[in-house]
Simulated assay, not measured.
Amino acid sequence: MAAEFSRPGSLYGAVDLGARKQAIEAQARREAAGPAGAAGAASAVIEATSATFNSDVVERSMSVPVIVEATVPRAEQVRQFSDTLEKLAGEAAGAWILARVDVEAEPQLAQALRMRAIPTVYLAFQGQLMPLFEGPLPEAQLRQALAQVFEQLGVELAEPAEGEAPEPPLDPDLLAAEQAMEKGDLDAAAAAYQRLLARSPQDEEAKIGLAGVGLVRRTQDLDPADVLRRAAEDPADVDTQLQAADLELVNGQIDEAFDRLVGMVRRTAGPDREKVRVHLIGLFEALPADDPSVSKARRALARALF
């Protein structure tokens, strides 16, 4: 079950690895808010299970709309989206509540929900459950989607806190790339990222996204179980170790992927060592430059080389 839900079916995972920076910032904001701010967000979130779904979601939806997020909380690929949902639930101040379902821990509930992607978001209202959308959305699109839903239900949503900067409009090429990734159109996504980089060569999101496209291309036809088995059986097989690292990165096992390749740099020499080094640097590009895992791995790589 873990492998099935860890790897996103709609190919958005590699792009969302770039959202780790925003996720780290969101965590910092929650910590800065202190106990009161954390309590406010937490009070709007319910952890629903198979045993409690009827009372926590269905019955509660008779009096207040419930947004149900079916996800894998431990997966890096969707953590920023979950953080954003929590923030919006806190802003709603009780106008609606968020119920989170860990589908990895609740496989029977996941099957009952007939979900196909991580995350899948549903609306429970007056005892009825209906799907809203699949896959994570940027905050601006998520706000718009929820606003449209609650407008139809006659629910008024709170405006962002005073002094909070409005979400900047999404670059059209970045939006086109994200939409193409959600559809699995890697060529269109790569073209959109390249157009953005042609206009803004230092755009980090475009760099991350383009690296993510390459990562998806390399892994989409691999059998994870077979690759990881062969990597364990033959630690000296450079190509298999590179594939295993790619799969680990897609699955959010970022430190494991980097450690694997740093270890290969230590054990190899000549062309093999250079091949591993170049591949590892390419994986760094799939994450923000100041991501803690990247900084840690860069230091480890320097020690391994020198």
Rank of each mutant, 00 (worst) to 15 (best):
S63E: 10
R60L: 14
I67T: 06
V57N: 05
A99H: 02
A112Q: 15
A105I: 09
A110H: 05
S55D: 15
F81P: 01
P65Q: 04
A93M: 12
R60Q: 12
A44T: 01
A39R: 06
A89F: 00
N54R: 13
L113F: 06
S43H: 14
L113H: 06
E76T: 01
E104H: 06
Q111W: 11
P35K: 07
A99S: 02
Q111R: 15
Q77C: 08
A36W: 14
T84S: 15
V68T: 03
G37H: 03
I67D: 02
T71N: 08
Y122V: 04
G40M: 15
A124W: 01
F53P: 00
A32H: 12
V68K: 02
G34S: 11
M62E: 13
S63H: 11
I97N: 03
L109K: 11
V101P: 03
A117R: 10
V58N: 04
W96H: 01
V57D: 04
F53L: 07
F81H: 02
S82M: 09
V58Y: 07
V45K: 07
F53H: 06
E47K: 14
L113Y: 03
A51C: 11
P65V: 06
I67H: 02
A105K: 10
A70I: 12
Q111K: 15
A117E: 11
P107S: 06
K87W: 09
L98A: 02
A70C: 10
A39D: 05
Q77D: 05
R60T: 14
V68F: 03
A75K: 00
Q111Y: 10
S61H: 04
L113A: 03
A105F: 03
